[in-house]
Lab assay of single mutants.
Amino acid sequence: MSIQHFRVALIPFFAAFCLPVFAHPETLVKVKDAEDQLGARVGYIELDLNSGKILESFRPEERFPMMSTFKVLLCGAVLSRVDAGQEQLGRRIHYSQNDLVEYSPVTEKHLTDGMTVRELCSAAITMSDNTAANLLLTTIGGPKELTAFLHNMGDHVTRLDRWEPELNEAIPNDERDTTMPAAMATTLRKLLTGELLTLASRQQLIDWMEADKVAGPLLRSALPAGWFIADKSGAGERGSRGIIAALGPDGKPSRIVVIYTTGSQATMDERNRQIAEIGASLIKHW
């Protein structure tokens, strides 16, 4: 067993022997301040990774656009098919120029040779490549099948209805392509620590998230040296922004954090800054 596999296998073990965790309302004060600064709703939840206990939450059962955070769930569904012998990570998928959609920095470079399922998941999570996500959605049967996968996990809230990039439209009061912070946090925890996926697939999923290259201005910008984070960000229309993450000190994750916002007129930089400040408060009061 590799060191990384050992780390993920012992996530519940280490967490069980940690000192009790206590909620700190100071972080919620910052979440509410972010709402004021952005002029928009902000949803927040913080779960203990081992027990699933909610440590703090704000608007945990209000719907927010998922945006690209759905790509972690998508690759979880792909990995479940791999575990069941219905898919192979090494299978190569070929596609054409007509398949390319807006923001496809990886797939646009491989029109000639195609990409493997493993490479597509890596591109979808680490670079948020939209064509990679659409190609992977095709392998599982489309958005409705991802929703069905989530329902089978016990998540009857999260739903995907459309493809990239239309799913980022974020129309107010439109339930399409949305989740709730509580539902997303619980589902992410199941994917990373539950028995739904094999140990190898859980490790692969967290490795992809740990290698995320496009979430630097968010929670990662607030992390002290030595902290662990595996995350996936999302951005959408109407001032929408979000991030889902597993993080913790001492090089291992111990909490799940989900943050979503929508309806702001603020710039992307300002949305990023507010999420980073929430992260800084979380870490300060850990």
Score class of each variant (00 low, 15 high):
Pro224Trp: 03
Asp36Ile: 14
Ile3Ala: 07
Glu35Gly: 05
Trp227Asn: 01
Val82Asp: 05
Arg63Glu: 06
Gly52Phe: 05
Asp250Gly: 13
Ala84Ser: 12
Asp83Lys: 04
Gly251Ile: 07
Arg118Cys: 13
Ala200Asp: 15
Leu10Cys: 10
Asn130Leu: 01
Glu277Tyr: 08
Leu146Gln: 04
Arg220Asp: 03
Lys32Met: 15
Ile275Pro: 00
Ile256Tyr: 03
Asp207Thr: 13
Ile11Asp: 02
Leu120Tyr: 02
Arg202Cys: 09
Asp129Phe: 00
Pro253Tyr: 03
Asn152Gln: 15
Leu247Val: 11
Ala230Tyr: 03
Ala266Arg: 13
Val101Trp: 06
Leu219Gln: 04
Gln204Gly: 05
Met153Tyr: 08
Pro217Ala: 14
Thr131Pro: 03
Gly226Gln: 09
Val29Thr: 12
Leu282Gly: 03
Ser80Trp: 12
Lys109Ser: 14
Pro20Ser: 08
Glu237Ala: 15
Ala245His: 00
Thr261Val: 13
Ala84Gly: 14
Thr267His: 11
Ile93Asn: 03
Arg7Thr: 14
Leu192Glu: 02
Glu169Phe: 12
Trp163Met: 13
Asp129Lys: 00
Ser122Thr: 09
Leu100Phe: 09
Ile229Cys: 10
Pro249Thr: 08
Ile244Ala: 07
Leu136Gly: 02
Thr186Gln: 14
Leu197Phe: 06
Arg159Ser: 08
Thr27Gln: 06
Lys284Met: 10
Val42Asp: 00
Leu197Arg: 05
Glu61Phe: 10
Leu111Gln: 10
Asp83Tyr: 02
Glu119Phe: 02
Cys75His: 00
Leu196Thr: 15
Ile125Cys: 09
Thr138Asp: 12
Ile283Leu: 10
Leu19Glu: 08
Pro60Gln: 13
Asp129Tyr: 00
Ala124Asn: 04
Pro20Ile: 02
Ala222Thr: 14
Lys144Phe: 13
Ile278Gln: 00
Met153Asn: 10
Lys30Phe: 07
Glu46Phe: 09
Met180Pro: 03
Gly39Asp: 12
Thr178Ala: 05
Gly236Ile: 02
Ala225Glu: 14
Trp227Met: 03
Ile206Gly: 09
Ala246Glu: 06
Ile244Met: 08
Leu100Trp: 05
Ala182Asn: 09
Pro20Arg: 13
Asn134Gln: 05
Ala266Tyr: 08
Asp113Val: 09
Pro249Gly: 05
Gly242Cys: 06
Glu175Asp: 14
Val157Ile: 12
Gly43Ala: 08
Arg81Ala: 10
Asn152Phe: 11
Gly279Trp: 03
Val82Gly: 05
Lys252Arg: 13
Gly114Gln: 04
Gln37His: 13
Met184Glu: 01
Val29Met: 11
Glu62His: 08
Leu197Lys: 06
Thr116Ala: 07
Asn168Gly: 11
Tyr103Trp: 15
Ala183Leu: 07
Asp231His: 04
His5Asp: 09
Gly251Lys: 14
Asp207Gly: 14
Met66Leu: 12
Trp208His: 03
Val42Phe: 14
Ala77Met: 11
Leu199Ser: 11
Pro65Asp: 01
Ala185Asn: 01
Arg176Glu: 07
Ile125Leu: 12
Leu19Thr: 15
Val106Trp: 07
Gln274Thr: 15
Met180Leu: 09
Ala15Phe: 15
Arg241Gly: 05
Val157Gln: 14
Gln97Arg: 15
Arg202Phe: 03
Pro224Leu: 04
Arg118Gly: 15
Gly226Glu: 10
Arg7Tyr: 09
Pro224Ile: 03
Asp269Pro: 09
Gly248Thr: 01
Glu166Pro: 06
Ile93Thr: 05
Thr186His: 14
Asn173Lys: 13
Thr107Val: 08
Ile283Cys: 09
Leu74Lys: 01
His285Asn: 14
Ser104Val: 04
Ser201Ile: 03
Ser281Gly: 08
Arg41Met: 11
Pro217Tyr: 08
Arg238Pro: 09
Phe149Arg: 07
Lys232Pro: 00
Pro181Thr: 05
Gln265Ser: 15
Ile278Ser: 00
Ala183Glu: 11
Ile171Cys: 14
Glu26Asp: 09
Leu191Ala: 06
Ile11Tyr: 11
Asp177Tyr: 01
Asn130Lys: 00
Trp208Met: 08
Ser281Pro: 03
Arg238Asp: 07
Ile259Gly: 01
Ala245Glu: 00
Phe13Cys: 10
Ser104Thr: 06
Ala148Met: 15
Asn130Gln: 04
Arg220Ile: 03
Ala225Tyr: 13
Gly142Asp: 06
Leu19Arg: 08
Ile45Arg: 03
Thr126Phe: 03
Asn134Glu: 02
Gly43Met: 00
Met209Leu: 08
Gly39Val: 10
Ser51Thr: 14
Val31Ala: 08
Leu205Gln: 02
Ile54Arg: 09
Gly114Glu: 04
Ser254Thr: 14
Glu56Gln: 11
Lys32Leu: 11
Pro20Gln: 15
Glu237Lys: 13
Arg59Ile: 02
Glu270His: 10
Val31Trp: 03
Leu120Met: 11
Ser68Thr: 00
Thr69Val: 03
Ala200Asn: 15
Phe149Asp: 06
Ser240His: 06
Asp212Trp: 02
Leu120Cys: 06
Ile244Pro: 00
Gln204Met: 15
Ser240Asp: 05
Gly142Ile: 01
Ile244Asp: 00
Phe228Leu: 06
Leu167Pro: 04
Ala34Lys: 04
Thr107Cys: 09
His94Arg: 13
Ser264Asn: 07
Val106Cys: 09
Glu145His: 14
Ile278Val: 09
Met209Arg: 00
Ser51Gln: 10
Arg81Gln: 10
Leu146Tyr: 06
Asp269Trp: 10
Ile3Ser: 10
Met268Tyr: 08
His94Glu: 11
Arg92Phe: 10
Lys213Leu: 13
Glu108Leu: 09
Ile3Glu: 06
Ile256Asp: 00
Asp212Val: 04
Arg220Leu: 03
